[in-house]
Design a protein around this nucleic acid. Structure first.
Lengths: 231, 231
DNA sequence: CCGACTTTGTGCGTCCGTTCACAAAGGCTT
DNA sequence: AAGCCTTTGTGAACGGACGCACAAAGTCGG
């Protein structure tokens, strides 16, 4: 379940506060979900609560960590050391949860050899070697859009089965490979959409009578549109 | 719909290739979705296709842009200029889609006054002034977890109604405010979960007979667990 | 001008996730 | 030791998203 990490974080916070026991109601509030949903989620890992009391924080942390595979270390490689790749390489949230960044790769010879966050940037040519020798299991793609699919193909070929993709493209991979996508500009676009909704729907800044959807086959020739290019 | 930005990107790519018309089947493949779903999505903005032919790329781009509110400019403020905030401020995908970063704010006096991506970092004290004077409608929170809720409260108070949160906390806001969350470490944890599944479920690296869920009320005292702290 | 072919738009059945509500279970107090 | 009170775990109803499959609509060639 995608919510387990959220629960885990909330539990860690409680742990730091010295809380030993928590009810589903309290934990659900901290995680921002419905308490029944939380109980059902937790029941999927077996029953670890005590009726009348709640859940033992410490034990639950261990169970969820185990379920998520955080009791073992995962070797991560970051491909593409632009602004985003650099930020990711220095992100403390990785190391603290068992994710060890073991390689930074880039095609740009101007950054190859530079040391970033304690690692030396290596050339993308070494991708296959690095993946195999260091047993990389998770790769982070932070390249420009144009390079992402090629990099992805090489990663898959080299045996990587989990990919976190920051490039604004839809990667095509075999079913056996898990891809998760984070697209920053899409997030902003969704916010803009809702923001516009609040302001009264599309075109609220223009003539109000223009609300109705255009009839089908309205001539598109004169329609203005925004030109946008990828980063 | 959260898929519109994906369609829009695919359409932009087609446009650059000089394609004038596209069928739902082709566009769906490019966006990585089912063609019936795509048609249904598009029909929600009114009917803009021609049976037997497909959709006019240029017109569709305009319609989706309009629906998403990309025909107008959105003013964005980034709070927190650490690694991530810096990367975001230089991210080309924002400006190209009508998002104008108008302010960088930080509490750290060592970075206040520095110029980053063409903007001067300002002190967080000016948050209210900046939001109001520059008509910020979307804020990006890239602060440490501990500061996020306080910053969020001030943003909401100042009138911001859309927030993109990168801090690993669940923000509490009024219903009228839209929050989207991007948590990098959660994405990796989900990948780790699937990766572990492939490897044979939890604890596959330990005794294999340990598969069965622990009985309820197993003594938790001796359970090892990973200690994790926030970034 | 007509018929065949292509592609849209959508009605409908299916399935998954969410939520309510309650019975069972366990602790705590007296 | 017994009953009360809290909280879990889950059955069942609900709702929404998804995808199939098809009729309607429109194009294009002859």
């Amino acid at each position: 379940m995608a919510r387990l990490p959220v629960y885990l974080r909330a539990l860690h916070n409680l742990q730091e506060l010295g809380v030993a026991t928590v009810s589903s109601e309290e934990l659900a509030a901290a995680a921002g979900v419905n308490s029944a949903k939380l109980r059902k989620d937790l029941s999927h890992l077996g029953s670890y609560g005590t009726r009348g009391v709640g859940y033992q924080v410490e034990y639950l942390v261990y169970q969820i960590s185990r379920e998520l595979g955080l009791t073992q270390d995962w070797v991560v490689a970051i491909i593409g050391v632009g602004n985003l790749g650099r930020a990711l390489s220095g992100y403390g949230g990785f190391a603290s949860r068992g994710f060890r960044v073991a390689a930074l790769l880039d095609a740009d010879t101007r950054v190859v050899g530079r040391r970033i966050s304690g690692l030396t940037v290596e050339h993308i040519d070494k991708l296959e070697t690095v993946v195999k020798d260091r047993e990389v299991s998770i790769a982070v793609i932070a390249t420009p859009a144009g390079a992402a699919q090629a990099v992805c193909d090489r990663l898959v070929e080299a045996g990587v089965t989990s990919i976190l993709n920051f490039a604004p493209v839809v990667l095509s991979v075999p079913d056996s490979v898990e891809v998760r996508k984070v697209d920053l500009s899409i997030e902003l676009q969704i916010l803009a959409f809702h923001e516009q909704r609040k302001a009264g729907g599309p075109m609220a800044d223009q003539i109000v009578g223009d609300y109705a959807p255009l009839r089908r086959n309205d001539p598109p020739e004169s329609a203005p549109y925004v030109e946008a290019v990828d980063a």
